[in-house]
Design a binder for these strands. Structure first.
Lengths: 340, 340
DNA sequence: GCTATGATATTGAACGGTCAAGTATATTGG
DNA sequence: CCAATATACTTGACCGTTCAATATCATAGC
């Protein structure tokens, strides 16, 4: 039955409506030059025959595919990817696009972009939290395909959408300073991660600006284990601290465990701030004060920006910066001077 | 410069190689009928001109797109989606496909599949953890597109790849029984979730098979909050229990908090088993005994199965069942009879 | 020496749309 | 009343492939 299913084409519809195929094309593309009566008739027929224009044929002539690609570059630790693709897929669909997802490494980036071009992808959202690359290089390899990075890349003048990591970190550090803390340690994400680099520097600089000496620090890699080990190291360093800024809620969970093992009480002995406001952060013991990033907003905005860029490639590239919020819970509290 | 970039076509290559375009086509598709010498020459030229076949044109004639679609249906709670799309994207690429991701609801499912067809998607991976639908209905709406569900759907005789939830649950429950527990409570995912349905039933049936009366239970929705509330309810029910099976690690975190608030010690008073073996489960207090699912395996296998199905649509549909593992940590321990 | 054979290469027609230019008819204005 | 214009619709070419049918040629068989 359906095996013999001849695809209905624009010409079949045209024949049924006794007009030419071009008229049908005009209707499909909502272009003027068709009388209301004919338009209705054609629309009805398309409905009846449940006709769908062949995307391949459209692509062939228009050189566009109504497809965006989310290119994930060198993302190893999964937790933070979360629903990005789902969010982006939804946003893309709402803008009339499909979303292709692909995953690659820095070494294969150029190739990935070439194949994006071959697939006639209309634009690329790059999610590359560790990618250091010059703007010129990006322009060179992306073959003119509109591209928006879904990252905080303050050194780049190309299009990106990201959370201001300096602002976010300032939020965390100044919250602690405001509570009276003077010895503030840090477990930043490792500097290979762009966010790690900025969080580390922002932590240090905020302290210096306030006339405070940066406390001990030790990098993590986003995993709970790394937070655990980093916290151990910081304690082992012997340098005193009454507060700790931990680069993600996940690492904070590891840090909490490590500190507990050392008999350090939270928040009585040490106040802790995490990042991300994951669901988890409300359920740690004690619940974590944390920096909230609305990632779904970032995903949506990246798609939105990209579609704008596709619609008008002439608009001047800019950067869309999102700001984080501070969520205060019970892992931070005012410093109470010990009676020494 | 690049603005005037005329796309190089198969005919350009043909001209340069002084052969016909069809010969080039044969080379591209690795078909026989071309002498080794000509083949080499053409390959070299394609390399030099960095020619890439136009996917749209290929799609138009072949009616295939070398694209798979991951269709996410009614997934609300994000945590568990995690890296599925990334895993699938990688697996797809390794099999020579691109991966399209889209997100939809039950109500729009038919439409989503129609548009998949219009896009000439070669096959669909459906991730629909709550979708109850007859096999006939699925066959009807998917228009002959090969489809593999990435779910445990024991009632379906169509293609699916999933973890045996009954086996998994048995693993959890019998572990507890083996430790001497006789009063085993449960916080299953809500029955709208297919996994929830099966976990609940498997919990109950395993107990009955062992001659035990099912303990109190209360459903959750995957969120930590729901685990928290469910645990409160179970305690409030007044029915005694010495062990608790919680449908996800996330919910277990909530449950841990609730039980702690009631002064119930884990594992001294109550043993707990979670599901998923998330990174988190090793960092709860105490670390959670849990059921491990290798989700990345499931994603990969779903892609693999789908590509097999595309290659040979005649193969008899079957179901690929994965088995979970039990990871024992400190949240479970032998029941010590109280001296009453 | 002539035909059968297989390997290699060519040609023309799809595939299902879009685009640019064209025609036919009705409407307007001077 | 006729040219100018607007509206509605049509035609032919083209996008870059693949596919089926066909041509060419050297080699082998008899």
């Amino acid at each position: 039955m359906t095996s013999k299913k001849k695809n209905i084409t624009i010409r079949d519809i045209a024949k049924l409506a006794s007009v030419s195929y071009q008229t049908v094309s005009l209707v499909i593309n909502e272009k003027p030059g068709v009388s209301e009566k004919t338009r209705r008739k054609i629309l009805r027929l398309m409905e009846e025959m449940d006709y769908r224009p062949n995307r391949a044929a459209q692509m062939l002539t228009t050189h566009r595919s109504k497809t965006l690609e989310m290119l994930i570059v060198d993302v190893t630790y999964g937790g933070r990817l979360a629903d990005s693709t789902k969010n982006a897929a939804r946003a893309a669909r709402e803008a009339g696009y499909s979303l292709l997802v692909s995953e690659t490494s820095f070494a294969e980036l150029a190739e990935a972009l070439e194949s994006a071009e071959a697939r006639l992808v209309d634009g690329v959202i790059m999610y590359a939290p560790r990618l250091r690359i010059s703007d010129d290089e990006v322009l060179r390899i992306c073959n003119g395909i509109p591209l928006v990075r879904r990252d905080y890349v303050p050194n780049s003048r190309l299009a990106w959408v990201g959370f201001d990591q300096v602002y976010a970190t300032r939020l965390a550090v100044e919250h602690l300073i405001g509570l009276g803390h003077r010895q503030i340690a840090c477990i930043p994400p490792m500097p290979e991660l762009i966010n790690g680099y900025w969080r580390y520097n922002a932590w240090k600089n905020t302290l210096l600006e306030h006339g405070l000496e940066p406390g001990p620090f030790c990098e993590g890699d986003y995993s709970m284990r790394s937070g655990y080990e980093a916290a151990h190291q910081i304690v082992a360093s012997g340098q005193p601290f009454t507060a700790l800024v931990v680069g993600t809620d996940h690492m904070a969970v590891g840090a909490l465990r490590a500190l507990r093992e050392h008999g350090i009480r939270i928040p009585e002995d040490v106040s802790i701030v995490g990042y991300d406001n994951t669901e988890l952060s409300a359920y740690t013991e004690p619940p974590l004060t944390t920096i909230q990033f609305k990632f779904s907003k970032q995903d949506e905005l990246a798609v939105k920006y990209l579609t704008e860029l596709i619609a008008d490639p002439q608009i001047e590239l800019h950067q869309r910066v999102l700001l984080a919020d501070l969520i205060i819970r019970e892992s931070t509290r005012p410093l109470i001077d010990s009676p020494s």
